[in-house]
Design a protein around this nucleic acid. Structure first.
Lengths: 231, 231
DNA sequence: GCAAAAGTGTTTCCGATACACCCATGA
DNA sequence: TCATGGGTGTATCGGAAACACTTTTGC
């Protein structure tokens, strides 16, 4: 059985939560086949001497040129027929040596900030783009399931684990942090209560710096100190 | 790459939490090799046309004769060298066709009640026994990691998901339910507060029956109605 | 009648929620 | 001076925690 990794890479730009998708392109033919219009999560086979985590990191790095992305395994998907749909096979044939092999995949979710830079990566597989999670297209294989479980997992873990910061720039304002939570949890939060809660976390440390280039009172900047992640 | 499933099957007998282990036995030789003393979690390769969940179910059923065991996938383990340790190889050679192959495994935890019946299964692999989780031996492969993550996962999910009942007999007393929580969470709970909380859950329904054969006031029996799992 | 666990309410405390105004800045 | 988001405190509510005695049964 072949083993792959797939990555649901989330990005936050201050406005909305995005998911990185690749547009499959059947390189061999000029005409647009049905498969050519499919979108999918980035993923690929695990190499023979590579751990799962390393494979996920590599796949994402090959695709986005990003190297220090937060990545976390969340589920393995192994239905025997998960890659045997006709249009999925059509696409796999364009680059995989044994496209008909059964493939189980270990799914990861990843987090990246789209504030400073917008990774607009090139891929061997075709175009790449950030899609708003509230408006995702149908995806190839079982990637609909993978994406929706990834989002559910992110919702659960955003509060309990301390991962918000992976979606923000190194220096961020409390407003940015709050918007992120509002977007991911899909509900409005109270500003004062939110800030009270943040002040309890001593790994969110205020800087002696303020926002610049805004047309209102500039906000204090904060950063995340990973060495203080206990309380 | 080969793909296996491993099961961390927990059992509760009213006293303590147990984990099902198999004792590896190298069938071919009479003398006790080092491998002969190793213990491991039950597991085996996934068949070519079998889903991961089905494989976990099958492996456990082959080993314990139990068929409706609660099983949940919790993590995939894929270090390239996870089965290449010398004594692990020694054991794999006794029954696997290509023992040197890399194997990644998808780990499941399972829950079973040891109240009414104690599954004392036979295995192709050797003896089987229930080991107290507070006193686990060293295990083969990376099964120490798997077991400890399984236990951590069980601790987290016992409260949030409604899975306590999988470890209890069909009819149980509130004292049994509380002991279970105390053992898994490893802390003492207040009886009155605990019972208040349970009474909020309308999927724990009282029966018109009492405990029998105890040398004290018999307790009311309860059961679990899975159709009412919402509240 | 005694040992052993079942069963039951109230008070206290703390964390979560709701809520509105003044401030600093750039245009 | 105005528009824009930044920043702050208090009162209320509800769930969690602490806590001890009476009851029922088997022996």
């Amino acid at each position: 059985m072949d083993v792959s990794v797939d990555c649901a890479l989330f990005g936050f730009d201050g406005e909305s939560l995005k998911l990185l998708l690749i547009r499959q392109r059947t390189e061999s033919s000029g005409e647009l086949t049905e498969a050519a219009l499919q979108m999918a999560l980035p993923g690929n086979l695990v190499k023979e001497d590579e751990s799962l985590d390393a494979a996920a990191k590599r796949v994402l790095s090959e695709l986005t040129q990003l190297d220090d992305v937060f990545l976390k395994q969340f589920h393995a998907f192994g239905h025997p027929d998960r890659v045997s749909d006709l249009k999925d096979q059509q696409w796999l044939r364009t680059f995989r040596e044994e496209p008909q092999n059964r493939v189980m995949t270990v799914a990861y979710y990843g987090l990246v900030s789209l504030h400073d830079h917008t990774p607009s990566p090139a891929s061997f597989a075709g175009d790449v783009h950030w899609s708003d999670v509230r408006d995702l297209p149908n995806l190839a294989f079982d990637h609909d399931d993978i994406a929706s479980l990834a989002l559910a997992t992110l919702r659960t873990e955003l509060e309990s684990k301390h991962i918000s910061f992976e979606l923000l720039p190194e220096k961020f304002t409390l407003r940015q942090l709050q918007s992120l939570h509002e977007v991911v949890l899909d509900k409005k939060l109270d500003k004062r209560n939110f800030r009270k809660n943040i002040k309890k976390l001593n790994h969110v440390v205020p800087l002696n710096e303020k926002e610049e280039g805004v047309l209102h009172k500039p906000a204090q900047l904060f950063t995340y100190d990973s060495s203080l992640t206990q309380p």
